[in-house]
């Protein structure tokens, strides 16, 4: 990543309240914290280059775990829990003069429809790049972005600033959240009025359950066969067949893979 040096980038990351899949406890959301991570990396050479924005309750404890990543402040648009956050967020982003807005793909709690980035983009008239794994560079008002595709593939796209990117779980892991900075960060609160999301009020929320899967009957006699059957699917996928290349290149490819997989350090 080589952030633009000639021009100061203004990056805003939107964060929401996450929910741990096993315990259901509030936490920093996985994708949102990756978005904070990416924002921090992009603005690493600028003091306070990253603005982190949340719409909701400024006393929400999970905000502190975002702050623990080294944020000095989090801007909170304080609004009624029943309010629709899209309008005030759009307003705020419009005024802020942001170049890049980072969000998660979808929230871990609440509606979790994944619509927010699209609605904001529509409202602001910006481009949206979904499922971003990395922002490689920003030069002369154009960003080179890597989108995450299934099975570890990437697609490089160029997009003109300003734009919204939703960050995929393929983006770099969020740094550790430390207790000290988390406690110290300021919550800069702006009270806003927003329309109540009336549609949502009539909904009934329930815990999502994975649909049960029909078990495949495997007629394997040995453990090895069962193991093969269980793992067979991914065998032929991915990878590379190297026949023409020199032995050196082939060895290098193997070495690279081992390093990449963390087998060698």
């Amino acid at each position: 990543m080589q952030p633009n040096s000639s021009q100061k980038l203004k990056i805003v990351t939107l964060v929401s309240v996450g929910k741990h899949p096993q315990s259901g406890r509030v936490r920093r959301a996985d994708q949102d914290s990756r978005a904070v991570e990416l924002g921090l990396r992009l603005s690493a050479d600028q003091a306070d280059g990253l603005v982190v924005l949340h719409a909701g309750d400024p006393n929400e404890p999970s905000l502190r775990s975002y702050a623990g990543m080294g944020l000095t402040a989090i801007n909170v648009l304080q609004l009624d829990p029943a309010a629709d956050a899209v309008a005030p967020l759009g307003e705020q982003l419009h005024q802020s003069g942001a170049d890049i807005v980072l969000t998660g793909v979808r929230a871990e709690s609440g509606e979790g429809s994944g619509m927010l980035p699209y609605q904001l983009a529509e409202k602001l008239g910006w481009s949206i790049v979904p499922r971003v794994a990395d922002i490689v560079s920003v030069k002369e008002g154009v960003a080179e972005v890597l989108q995450a595709l299934p099975r570890g593939q990437r697609r490089a796209v160029k997009v003109r600033l300003p734009f919204i990117a939703s960050i995929d779980t393929a983006a770099p892991m969020a740094r550790q959240s430390a207790f000290g900075p988390a406690q110290r960060a300021a919550m800069t609160v702006t009270v806003v009025n927003a329309e109540t999301d009336t549609l949502r009020q009539s909904w009934h929320e329930a815990v999502a359950k994975k649909r049960p899967k029909r078990l495949k009957v495997i007629k394997a006699k040995t453990a090895a066969e069962r193991f093969k059957a269980a793992t067979a699917k991914s065998q032929s996928e991915g990878g590379r067949i190297m026949k023409q290349e020199s032995a050196g290149e082939q060895a290098q490819a193997i070495l690279d893979l081992l390093v990449e997989e963390g087998v060698l350090r």
Partner: peptide, 16 residues
């Protein structure tokens, strides 16, 4: 750990 957030390897994950 508490100021720098730099517990190595699996440390951060385990704490989380």
């Amino acid at each position: 750990t508490m100021e720098k957030g730099s517990t190595p390897n699996k440390g951060a994950e385990v704490l989380d």
